[in-house]
Design a protein around this nucleic acid. Structure first.
Lengths: 156, 156
DNA sequence: AGGCATTCGTTGGTGGCGCCAACGTCGGCG
DNA sequence: CGCCGACGTTGGCGCCACCAACGAATGCCT
């Protein structure tokens, strides 16, 4: 649906370049994960569990950046598939403790492989140095805006 | 909702960096345009009209990259606000010819100003050279994936 | 000890964006 | 003439980000 060249008014906007390339990246990721019946949220949650160990849904949300209401839905799916276990915290009955099951660990590994392939696909036209540069620039932008968010949340 | 640091498994994925920064960019754009009751699609369409002149909805979709079904909705809003005019093409009665009204031109200018401010906000941590580098890298990625899309559409 | 604010999980809903299927209308070409 | 295709439109889907509200439970503060 976008055969002709976009107007310069778009091409010259960094925000447009970002959201467009991100859209392509998102499609690659969705397709890659879709092939093993997974979605972005699943990877974020399982990766967080793997790296930080068992956690409540709230801390899981904070680590993964997934909204708590979406964490509920994603964990419903993951638990139904046996990839996570949801058991009540005896020390605080408001909380659930989420753990990664062996099946979940296997699934996570499969996701990682898919995502590695996606990165290759995504970054194909760039050489190693350029990839590093891109990563650095994006990381700096991200850090900046994450800080801004934190400040405005604590101030407001 | 994302207070703690994301896991390294995310930070190391270029696709994640892209979609995250794009999400921030998208929010800035949405807020900026929202202040003047505009949305992303509106800008894309008006900018296309401004740069390429009056066009049918189909060619407008091709230029702006907005899906035709979404073009309909956006043009309903823009026409209702008097920013565009939709008149039947006498030469081809399937087509509508969309034109930019004076009011639309004014609106476009206001959007441009907002978006310029957003770019500043978005890229604040980068100096001029770094901004140029980022633009170049993203443009190359975008061109690559756009070509891939075209090829697969004409092949399949 | 009592009362209040806060946290946690959950439900249901919103909006943007990208996209697909279907349909009636109309034009162009073999 | 008949068929294929383009055009505009409607209605719907999926993913992601996010918000409001609620009951249950906890912790703090007095």
């Amino acid at each position: 649906m976008s055969d002709d060249a976009p107007p310069e008014a778009l091409r010259s906007l960094a925000s447009w370049l970002l959201t467009q390339t991100a859209a392509h990246a998102h499609r690659l990721v969705t397709d890659g994960l879709g092939a093993i019946a997974a979605r972005g949220h699943h990877y974020r949650l399982l990766a967080s569990l793997d790296e930080f160990g068992p956690a409540s849904q709230a801390t899981l949300a904070r680590h993964s950046g997934v909204h708590t209401s979406d964490v509920v839905a994603a964990l419903n799916e993951l638990s139904a598939a046996g990839h996570t276990a949801r058991l009540p915290d005896p020390a605080d009955r408001r909380r659930n403790i989420i753990t990664l099951t062996p099946s979940g660990r296997t699934h996570l590994t499969a996701m990682r492989e898919r995502l590695q392939a996606v990165q290759e696909d995504l970054l194909r036209p760039l050489d190693a140095t350029e990839r590093a540069t891109l990563t650095t620039l994006l990381t700096r932008l991200l850090a900046h805006h994450e800080n801004r968010e934190r400040e405005s949340r604590h101030a407001g």
